[in-house]
């Protein structure tokens, strides 16, 4: 399913003394099957963009195309549910949305809201639990008896069980330890490939954006600053650094070396192994250009 934002503007509490412009003139295309990362500081507008992807917010100007549906400023829309069935969102700290008595019921909640039968929803719950790497015997447990990391996985399973075509992830690994972080990110990437999903990852982590995304959008002060492939985005790291954004550590190191040795490598490298190779090669050449 393709999603496309056209010149989207959003104002919070429009027409009140507390009005606040969150994003303006945002245009982003997310063709089916893309892994898109949206990066930017807190307050850059990336969370506002995210909420337009399944019509949780309606643009105050411009339009959002979700599959065949168009959400346009100043028009009433009915039956937004069908959109939400296709676009699943994993919010930041998703474990805060758990509420059912058992893990199974909580995972079934989403699918059943969208009219999936109870027996199908049960089957989906089992499958989703397996996907997030939790044992089946916790299905009957209360989600509130689980550890923080397990709760996070249950909440994610609840979104996966909706079987959406588009998966939107808002900092899904915030607060997890390094192992948990890697496992969750790898899980989403595998699903993205296996189910041919579109994935939108909103993140602070340049590492993750560089590692997983096909496309990166950089948000700054409510506007799209640049967009392109990771190679394109990070080919001009200095521009990002000037905005106070981080660059992936690999690129940071490459820049430091280039600066110290007054040289320029043939390309920007996004992998540690490749950078090590390039540095070794360069040093064998005598550290000269």
């Amino acid at each position: 399913m393709d999603i496309s934002l056209k010149n989207v503007e959003y104002r919070y509490q429009a027409d009140s003394p507390f009005e606040h412009l969150a994003i303006s003139d945002v245009s982003i295309d997310i063709p089916s099957g893309t892994y898109l990362a949206i990066i930017g500081h807190t307050g850059s507008g990336k969370s506002t963009v995210l909420q337009h992807l399944n019509a949780l917010l309606k643009p105050t100007k411009g339009s959002v195309l979700i599959g065949s549906r168009e959400i346009k400023a100043g028009r009433k829309d009915k039956n937004l549910k069908s959109i939400r069935e296709n676009v699943g969102i994993v919010f930041q700290f998703p474990e805060h949305q758990l509420f059912e008595e058992t893990v199974e019921k909580d995972i079934m909640f989403g699918p059943m809201n969208f009219g999936v039968s109870e027996s199908d929803a049960k089957a989906r719950a089992k499958e989703a639990l397996q996907l997030v790497g939790l044992p089946e015997d916790i299905l009957e447990k209360s989600p509130f008896d689980l550890s923080g990391g397990q709760m996070r996985r249950v909440a994610i399973a609840g979104v996966l069980a909706m079987e959406p075509d588009v998966l939107v992830l808002d900092e899904p690994t915030a607060g997890l330890d390094p192992r948990g972080r890697k496992e969750i990110m790898d899980l989403f990437y595998t699903l993205h490939k296996k189910r041919n999903l579109s994935t939108v990852l909103v993140t602070h982590s340049m590492e993750d954006a560089a590692k997983y995304a096909d496309e990166i959008v950089v948000m700054h002060q409510g506007k799209v600053l640049t967009k392109g492939t990771p190679e394109q985005i990070f080919s001009d790291p200095v521009a990002l650094i000037e905005l106070g954004l981080d660059v992936p550590e690999v690129i940071g190191l490459q820049l430091k070396i280039e600066e110290t040795f007054h040289t320029k490598f043939s390309k920007i490298s996004l992998s540690e192994r490749e950078l090590a190779e390039m540095i070794a090669e360069f040093l064998r050449g005598g550290g000269q250009r």
Binding site: L253, A276, I279
Partner: peptide, 11 residues
């Protein structure tokens, strides 16, 4: 990590 990789590449 980089120190290790570099050593591995003969630096």
């Amino acid at each position: 990590k980089m120190s290790k990789l570099l050593r591995h590449k003969g630096v």
